[in-house]
Amino acid sequence: MAWLVLVVSGVLETVWAAALSESRSFTRPVPTGVFAVALVASMIGLGYALRTIPVGTGYAVWVGIGAVGTALYGMIALGDSVSLVRILCLLLLVSGIIGLKLAH
C-alpha cells in the first residue's frame, strides 16, 4: 500500500509543478488552488509512505516520478524541446526508480 501511495504522491508532484507554472506567480486562482491542493496531498502521501519505506529510497522515488512526469508534461503540453538525449536521460531516471524499488 505504501508504494502505491508513494507513486500517486509522485504523480501529484507533477501536478503541483505544472499548476505552479500555470499560476503565473500565484496570480491565477484556479491553477493556484490546484497547486495548493496537489502540494499538500503529495506531501501527506509522501509522509505516509515514509512510515514503511526507507527515507532515502522513498524520497528518491518520489522526486524521480515528479521529475520525469514534469519533464514529459513540458515536452508534451508546453512545447519543451524533445531530443533523443533528453528521452534517454528520462529513461535512465525511470530505470533508477525501478532499480530502487527492486533493491528495497
Rank of each mutant, 00 (worst) to 15 (best):
Y73D: 02
S95I: 15
V37E: 05
S21G: 14
F26D: 10
L91G: 07
G96L: 13
V15H: 01
A19K: 10
A60C: 07
A38V: 05
V55L: 13
S83G: 08
S25Y: 10
A49G: 05
L93Y: 09
L90N: 09
V85K: 14
L50D: 04
Y59I: 03
P54Q: 04
G64H: 10
R51I: 08
A49K: 00
T32M: 05
G45I: 04
A38D: 02
S81K: 15
V55T: 12
T52S: 07
S25Q: 14
F35N: 00
M43A: 11
G47Y: 07
V61Q: 00
V11I: 13
V15G: 00
I87H: 11
S95P: 05
S81W: 14
A77G: 13
G69E: 04
G56Y: 03
D80K: 07
F35W: 05
F26A: 14
L78V: 05
S25H: 14
E22F: 11
L88P: 08
V63D: 02
G64K: 10
P31F: 04
L46T: 01
S83I: 13
S42L: 07
T52H: 11
G45H: 02
S21L: 15
L39A: 08
S42R: 03
V30Y: 13
V11P: 02
I76G: 00
A36K: 00
S95T: 15
A19S: 10
E22R: 12
C89F: 13
A41L: 12
T57M: 14
V34Q: 05
I65W: 03
A17P: 05
V30I: 14
L46F: 03
L12D: 01
I53W: 01
G56D: 09
G66H: 01
T32C: 06
P31L: 01
I53H: 04
A36L: 10
A36R: 07
P29R: 13
L84C: 12
V55I: 15
I87W: 12
L46G: 03
V55P: 00
D80Q: 07
S21M: 15
I44M: 11
A41M: 05
G47D: 06
L91C: 08
L50T: 07
I44K: 05
L72C: 09
L93C: 15
S42H: 03
V94E: 10
G45T: 06
A41N: 09
V34D: 08
L72D: 00
R28S: 01
L50F: 03
G79A: 13
S23M: 05
V85F: 15
V34E: 03
V11S: 04
